[in-house]
Design a protein around this nucleic acid. Structure first.
Lengths: 229, 229
DNA sequence: GACGAATTAGACAAGACTGTCTAATTTTGT
DNA sequence: ACAAAATTAGACAGTCTTGTCTAATTCGTC
């Protein structure tokens, strides 16, 4: 090879930029192919670096994998806490505000690249790295659910909801707003916006029918529509 | 193939018994190691046959994988429809009957070996075999959800529930009764019986609060308990 | 008991992958 | 501009895996 001018990307990237490139490419390949099927040469090519650079930054395949999971976990947690911070503590329109929040949760934490990748890695390799994913479990869902439960408890205390156990309500809220996306998630896909909205809307309505102070207006309206049909 | 006397134990097993052994062992290994990581020698050893026998029954690794998925899909569907047949159409105690049904769904369709294995294979290899899993999707969740929705529609028509959209209600029912088991499922584990019961109970109560004719007694009781606390 | 089909253990070629090494080149800090 | 550090392409040994083949053995059935 005779590189008078690097034919790669426009400018050469820094040391740190390459480390990031490698981890990103590795995340993509590990998700697509699984740990065993992932190929270091492919990761290097996808990151736009040489194989040796991959080994320079991360001693071996296993260390690289751990780095990928830690990176995804950290970013997902940050995104999730940032999104929970937008929880509607003083709702003007409870249903609309909760649907908005549900959409933000889905878009920023569950359907985005990091969320999908981390979920897939947990599903496929979780049993192989118990300690690594135990760490994720404590830092991620454990604290996330507590934080969300606290917000629901506040809403209940303020009289907007009737909740017995805020932890249960928080888990059920998350389950409900994703109820219609399960199949897509299982196959690793990204649901289109309108499906996400549909699932969030249906989920929030059912949640409010269960935990709201009275069954929501939309429910009653559709009930009479059903009767007349 | 007429097995007049079937020596199921250590003595030599029949042709058909070996085919089953191979598929079972393959399911286990594919789940544990993923498609790429699965090793034919290991499958053969785990099935108690020679490697050549594996190749005799199934031309190659990919055909073996497809056979495993078809086998699991078929058994899971059969189990699911059998369980849906036990849906409480004429409930004496709606909450108790639905909790019982939820437990049967969890135990016979979701937490059992076939359910866990099939779910894991879909998650890990779903993107690699679009047509295979599209088939599963139509035959499995597609028909399952319809069948369950029909049962809920009947309950609603008989006046036991207030449901606008039975399909949405069916999906939300399944989401709710598993809401507390998500993490365990993600990591491929089997939740203990008491957790399954807890999740089913909480899920059914919330479901009935949302879709029942009035909020359930247990809810009202706990609500006053909460207020007094 | 005997015959054909199935099974077994093992060898085998072909290919893929990991992780190391080297020598040349490029980038970065000063 | 210069020296140190990082990066690159490529070769390489060692290992593993798949799928085929063969020759010996066992099984099912008459």
């Amino acid at each position: 090879m005779k590189p008078g001018v690097s034919p790669d990307t426009f400018p050469p990237r820094s040391h740190e930029a390459k480390r990031i490139s490698v981890v990103e490419a590795a995340a993509s390949v590990f998700c697509r192919e699984g740990f065993a099927g992932a190929n270091i040469d492919l990761i290097a090519a996808e990151a736009g670096v040489s194989r040796q650079t991959v080994y320079n930054h991360h001693r071996d395949k296993e260390k690289l994998f751990v780095a990928v999971v830690r990176d995804l976990t950290e970013r997902c947690n940050a995104g999730t806490f940032a999104t929970i911070a937008t929880f509607p503590d003083q709702p003007s329109n409870l249903e609309a505000d909760l649907i908005g929040f549900a959409m933000r949760m889905n878009r920023n934490c569950i359907c985005n690249r990091d969320g999908r990748f981390l979920r897939k890695l947990i599903q496929t390799e979780g049993e192989r790295y118990p300690e690594l994913f135990a760490e994720w479990r404590e830092q991620g869902p454990g604290r996330t659910w507590s934080a969300l439960a606290a917000r629901f408890a506040r809403l209940a205390y303020a009289g907007h909801l009737l909740i017995q156990d805020p932890d249960v309500a928080a888990r059920q809220f998350l389950a409900l707003i994703n109820a219609e996306l399960q199949i897509t998630f299982m196959l690793g896909g990204t649901p289109p916006d309108d499906e996400v909205l549909q699932s969030a809307t249906n989920g929030v309505r059912t949640f409010l029918n269960a935990f709201g102070r009275q069954k929501s207006a939309s429910h009653a309206a559709k009930r009479s529509a059903l009767v007349s049909a």
